[in-house]
Design a protein around this nucleic acid. Structure first.
Lengths: 334, 334
DNA sequence: TGTGTACGCTCAAACGATTGATCATGTGAG
DNA sequence: CTCACATGATCAATCGTTTGAGCGTACACA
């Protein structure tokens, strides 16, 4: 491993041209008029020396880092994996590097301080809430940012999915199977996605002229789902189906139902929002509503690339939302 | 949102000192001798102007980016989430930013090109194989790097876990329950972890004076696990227990067993390497061997911070490895 | 009075790439 | 023969920080 500290000047010297020429060749500057032979000398020198541009110098001069950040609450939640994939591939095709970070033992504020100024050209925030001071922190950083999957209360700067429609699809599926007592295992009280899915649930129930079943809120985790399911099944009129706001809670919800001595789907049907590969391997395989999460990440990057600090973004991403029927839903008992 | 392009010079002007003083105050330069009053003027100015150091300029000057990279194959694999968490928190406490990326539609080579030179001070590679040209790419980048969980064939530059011991713990658990026909659902043929876990399986079987059951390799995915399990159960002498090399494949393996009409653990016991929150919510809850994955990430960062490009690292991380007994293992039938 | 030295700062040269301005040379038109 | 202009480059300022070296003042000591 040899300490390669090759600079533009080294390349220029080898190719017997000015540094400016090398720079323009690398950046394909259209104003550059150059002989084919000279260009080749430059290219050969770059190759022979193994030259790679120094990002710090370039960023300093151009005030652009060609890097976007993506901030998520937790890597363990597989739902974010999809978003990351979409965002990464779109960033790559636009010539940006996407870097993903999460807030472990540190809020966004501290994270932004460590990121510093000029390291990233824009920030995507997935799953962030309306934490106090969040917007202020972002604005202090003076870079464009967009929230994914969260309609921030304070500013118009978000891309979301059609969660209401996703919820409606799930509920309609249950109604079509013949269910009438459909409960709702909702997301955490503060979360915007949770609110929209609950709204979709209510709308669909109204549409079907059914009374809203019991509704219990829980975090988007298996543990939360299990606890909430226990409470749902505790009531006098046990629901025959449950619409779960998130696949992670649904995994816990299934366990909760089993602990209560129920068999899925014979005694209770379960359908959840967000599809994962995992869903087909659960027992029973979980019926889900697939959302275009990768597309959400992709769209976020695209918007970010063309965004100025004061621009507004308020978009509900159009994209395929479909019910993936598996084995966790069936007609009600009796 | 105001375009904050505050520089050292602005701060210096406001505090009526030289830029050098501001710089030294910020970096807590011990050689700086300064009056308390002056220091306070500087601090106030920084605060009033909302100054944040420009990372590009700093990196250019110091040739350090204070950023480490972590490269993983796939965000969807929850095993990496643990590694990321450990690495992120350690990086933060050392004053580094950790950025995680994966190779989506691009190999490490292209990724490194986009990362450029000088953006990161070191790279952690988790789950990378011995792909051709990998080491060359890394060496061209002229930064320290370490492989996690993979004993690279070509260079001594890795931290791994004691996979053999993990496998032995799993097998011993099965033996203790009374199993004698213990099959092995191994990892992908090329993977180093797979090899070590298989070695551990063989050693433990030998120790118990049991014949090695059928061994089938599969990728670390649910789909791979399901297919492999089908083949395992296809033989003449059906095993009464299966040691699965990875929790993701185990999820598929459980489904494979069910498809074959078997009940877990009544007909077949299953134990897998790597614990996840998810494991308790599967049906039946999966017995696993917990490995110190977060510690692996943490250790990687620590080593990276003190590594010079030519240093060697070859470490088997000592750390707690324990069997988490749940419901997927029981005495053999009969 | 001269000298040593500690204090509390300031000066200015880097770091490596980008880019508007400039320049030398050759060619064709008038 | 001169001017205009295209071609194919070069020059040099600039981005914002860091950091070794330097500088003025005050005070102590001989």
């Amino acid at each position: 491993m040899k300490r390669s500290r090759v600079t533009l000047a080294d390349v220029a010297a080898m190719a017997r041209v000015d540094r400016a020429v090398v720079s323009r060749v690398i950046n394909k500057d259209p104003t550059l008029n150059i002989r084919q032979e000279t260009r080749e000398r430059v290219l050969t020198a770059i190759d022979r020396l193994g030259y790679r541009p120094n990002v710090a110098a370039r960023s300093l001069r151009t005030a652009r880092a060609h890097m976007f950040g993506l901030f998520i609450p937790d890597f363990a939640n597989p739902v974010y994996a999809e978003i990351i994939k979409g965002a990464e591939s779109e960033a790559a095709s636009q010539g940006y590097v996407l870097v993903t970070g999460s807030a472990i033992g540190a809020g966004l504020g501290e994270y932004m301080d460590r990121i510093g100024q000029g390291r990233i050209d824009g920030l995507l925030l997935a799953g962030a809430g309306d934490e106090a001071g969040l917007v202020e922190h972002l604005d202090r950083a003076a870079i464009p940012w967009i929230m994914l999957n969260n309609r921030s209360r304070s500013v118009e700067r978000y891309v979301i999915l059609d969660d209401e429609r996703a919820a409606a699809l799930a509920v309609e599926h249950l109604v079509r199977l013949g269910h009438r007592r459909i409960a709702h295992l909702a997301g955490p009280a503060g979360a915007d996605t949770a609110g929209r899915r609950s709204a979709g649930y209510s709308a669909a129930m109204r549409e079907a002229r059914l009374p809203e079943g019991p509704i219990v809120a829980a975090g988007y985790t298996p543990a939360g789902g299990a606890a909430a399911m226990a409470r749902l099944l505790d009531g006098p009129e046990r629901p025959t189906a449950v619409f779960v706001a998130n696949v992670a809670s649904a995994i816990g919800a299934m366990e909760g139902a089993r602990s209560a001595g129920l068999e899925i789907p014979r005694d209770v049907s379960i359908v959840a929002v967000h599809d994962l590969e995992l869903a087909s391997y659960l027992f029973p395989a979980l019926t889900t509503v697939r959302m275009p999460l990768a597309e959400l990440g992709r769209r976020g990057v695209t918007l970010l690339a063309g965004l100025k600090p004061d621009d507004k973004v308020a978009e509900v991403l159009a994209g395929p939302i479909e019910l993936i029927q598996r084995r966790s839903t069936a007609p009600p008992p009796g």
